[in-house]
Design a protein around this nucleic acid. Structure first.
Lengths: 190, 190
DNA sequence: CCTTAATTGTACCGATCAGTACATTCTGTA
DNA sequence: TACAGAATGTACTGATCGGTACAATTAAGG
């Protein structure tokens, strides 16, 4: 058989999609095997810890993506408005304008939250912290910035739930547009 | 053994908690049996359709609760501001101030969405429609009302995800407080 | 070509899954 | 008390679960 996967890292995007679509409980080794094209032998070769290790690797992979593409720019870009605009664009791209849900959110709602409690919690708190900082640099008063950041991150997650529930990505797109207007108004925040 | 359950309806709250905590895939008949105190014989006596019928009954039960306690008051209470305030209070009570997640949201994010697509979608669209009407009666311009309603429902769902992810109900409470300030401002909306 | 180790598919394990069959136990009505 | 039907627990089914063992295959180095 042709060798399609050369590295463990090549598997992570595929595994990510499987867990995103099925959740942890619903992602059976059978569907993982089918979607990756790898037998159990290969899967356990790359992930001796089994399904739990696969899910942990996916969470770490997602966290790393957001850390480098979203959180760090939010923290380090001196221009707060530019940082927030970039975050909204990256978010829109990552979630495919609402056609993709958040695997961390999926894990958070189900039983699997307890198993991955630390990673799930740190993902959201890192996002809120980084965005609050950028909002502060964009001119929002510190007290507002924190509340606004929490609201924005929650709004994104809620819009993903809504988009999936209604089977329509439009609510997510509208939410991002409203968020942009609120977080980065045409005239800098008072 | 003492008979604890006399009617199928008595089971729905128990089943609701199980599906809320475990999701559809994660709620095995073993845990359902343990949590309800009923053997499989009894469960299949009440729900010949098995797990799927149980979940459908739970969704219908939740939908009925929201219909009578939230959606209908939102539609029929002439005073829009009063209707919205009552909705926020009922929502806070139902979700136990953020200590409880939304079983429809849980179903929406996981694979189970496809199985219950109609009920999941209608729950959210009914909520958004009813709230948009009340917002209109509360003085919000029609265009704003629709967008504001969608945002509010999404915000509630997102806050539930956040509360569960961070294992802290506070974000939900703060979100409801902000929502109240936005939907029912001290001085009626412009 | 030969060796070696990494990689992979397959057969299997015990446990658990949803669901069925059915005998037993209750409960209400004579 | 006696009976009928509802309610219930238990034992089972085949399928699938996550995970293991291991032999066959592959690729790289000499």
């Amino acid at each position: 058989m042709a060798r399609l996967v050369y590295e463990r890292a090549d598997l992570l995007p595929l595994l990510g999609e499987v867990f995103r679509e099925h959740g942890f409980e619903g992602a059976s080794l059978a569907v993982i095997s089918r979607r990756t094209g790898l037998g159990k032998g290969s899967l356990y070769h790359f992930f001796p810890g089994g399904k739990e290790e696969m899910a942990a690797a996916v969470l770490a992979h997602v966290d790393h993506w957001f850390e480098t593409q979203v959180f760090r720019p939010l923290r380090e870009e001196p221009d707060g408005r530019r940082a927030i605009t970039a975050m909204l664009e990256a978010t829109d791209a990552y979630f495919r304008s609402g056609r993709r849900v958040c695997v961390v959110g999926v894990f958070a709602l189900a039983e699997s939250r307890d198993r991955f409690a630390v990673k799930v919690a740190s993902y959201f708190s890192a996002w809120i912290d980084a965005l609050a900082g950028a909002l502060g640099r964009a001119g929002h008063p510190p007290d507002d910035a924190r509340a606004l950041s929490e609201e924005a991150v929650g709004l994104i997650q809620g819009a993903l739930v809504l988009a999936r529930a209604l089977d329509d990505p439009a609510p997510f797109a509208r939410t991002l547009a409203r968020l942009k207007a609120r977080l980065v108004p045409e005239r800098p925040a008072p």
